[in-house]
């Protein structure tokens, strides 16, 4: 599952979850993966169009902690790389406030 992480160009306002700043909200815009991955992510409420907030990330390509609705979810780095998000206006503002957060 980790093998090929697509490295395509993304528009300016898009990024993947590993690149998103901590404590930032964003909308899921695409999921780079097949039916299996989409179904798996859906069980914990991650699907195109939903809002997620990245809370923290473990060091050295470790898991990433997300907040979806009221629930927190930990997902592996490779999986997070496949989730492309779009900054929401609010999220962009938050991101500017939090530039000191490392990623």
């Amino acid at each position: 599952m980790q093998a090929k992480i697509p490295n395509e160009r993304k528009p300016m306002n898009e990024t993947d979850l590993t690149q998103l700043q901590n404590r930032t909200k964003a909308l899921v815009s695409r999921i780079l993966g097949g039916y299996g991955l989409q179904k798996k992510l859906e069980t914990l409420g991650i699907r195109v169009g939903c809002e997620v907030e990245k809370l923290s990330a473990q060091a050295l390509r470790g898991p990433i902690i997300l907040k979806i609705g009221n629930a927190q979810v930990a997902i592996g780095f490779g999986m997070a790389k496949r989730i492309i998000v779009k900054y929401t206006d609010m999220g962009q503002k938050d991101a500017n406030h939090n530039t000191k957060n490392d990623n």
């Binding site: 599952m1 980790q2 898991p63 902690i65 629930a71 979810v73 930990a74 997902i75 592996g76 780095f77």
Partner: peptide
């Protein structure tokens, strides 16, 4: 495979 889990 990677971890994928809810944190209650």
């Amino acid at each position: 495979p990677e971890i994928f889990v809810e944190i209650p």
